[in-house]
């Protein structure tokens, strides 16, 4: 199964087929999501209009956790099976995850000011989310921290795997500890605590963000694959040049004889 996609050319062929669909789905879902989020959904009984920030804040936070989970999976696959595309997939995912984490933090802060009365507090949920952002930055920085690409990938993969412990901590922080942040509304045992008129825009933007991820991931993957080929070619060209140099000097020596 894994080997089917090991070949970059096969992957790119598959990407060609998926990409237009991802693009269309993202744009349609996001337009519909914005329409419901801003025009066609009621204000909240407590929060009034400010509840509309939820429709982009919560999906951003979901994407932050989703991308990190993917990062941990690709890192595991890269380390255990040495799958050639796994590390590239991690590299293509990390900036998207970091961006969504950033957006979740920023929109949460903007939402917190009018509702809670503060831009930021160091409670368990907000702190663990902040750490997630730094884990992403660490992963990105480590990738290029070594002279040989392999060493960097390995170090980054280890960080991604160790840091995965943070994902369940983020999810359950609101249940395990006293936090200012409210508990989960959608993914909980007793069913969603959000009225269906508000669940619609939330799920639409959430799906749009998923589509955006797939779309941009494929674009980033093309870049990463080309970049990896460049690295491989440069290495072989240097080797060829060295071989050629040795050959010409040998020939000169032979001529001098």
């Amino acid at each position: 199964m894994l080997n089917r996609f090991a070949n970059p050319i096969r992957f790119l062929r598959l990407a060609d087929q998926i990409q237009p669909w991802a693009a269309i789905l993202t744009l349609v879902l996001f337009a519909a999501g914005l329409y419901f989020a801003l025009f066609n959904s009621p204000p909240d009984y407590q929060q009034g209009e400010t509840v509309r920030i939820m429709y982009i804040h919560v999906p951003s936070a979901w994407m932050a956790l989703f991308c990190y989970t993917l990062l941990a999976i690709t890192s595991g696959v890269a380390m255990i099976w040495k799958h050639p595309l796994a590390n590239l997939a991690g590299r293509a995912t990390a900036p998207i995850g970091a961006t969504f984490t950033f957006l979740a933090l920023i929109t949460g802060s903007i939402w917190g000011k009018p509702m809670w009365g503060t831009w930021w507090v160091w409670d368990a949920r907000l702190t663990s989310m902040f750490i997630l952002f730094f884990l992403y930055l660490g992963y990105i920085a480590l990738q290029d921290a070594f002279d040989n690409a392999e060493g960097g990938s390995k170090a980054a993969a280890i960080l991604a795997l160790v840091g995965f412990i943070n994902v369940p901590i983020i999810k359950f922080s609101v249940d395990w500890w006293n936090t200012l942040h409210q508990p989960a509304s959608v993914i909980k045992f007793s069913g969603p605590a959000i009225h269906s008129t508000m669940l619609t825009p939330l799920l639409l933007t959430a799906l749009a963000f998923k589509g955006y991820y797939v779309w941009l991931f494929l674009i980033n993957m093309r870049g990463e694959i080309a970049e990896a080929r460049c690295r491989a070619l440069q290495v072989s060209q240097i080797q060829n040049a060295q071989v050629a140099k040795v050959a010409t000097s040998d020939a000169r020596d032979a001529h001098a004889d």
């Binding site: 009621p42 204000p43 009984y45 809670w116 509304s185 959000i194 009225h195 008129t197 508000m198």
Partner: peptide, 27 residues
């Protein structure tokens, strides 16, 4: 310093009103 903590329930005002009236309010 006073910070407001809100719960995880989101609903339109009319629904909240209706729930309160019918005695199903538990949020």
């Amino acid at each position: 310093e006073v910070l407001a903590k809100h719960d995880e329930n989101y609903m339109p005002p009319e629904v909240a009103e209706a729930l309160k009236k019918s005695g199903q309010w538990q949020g």
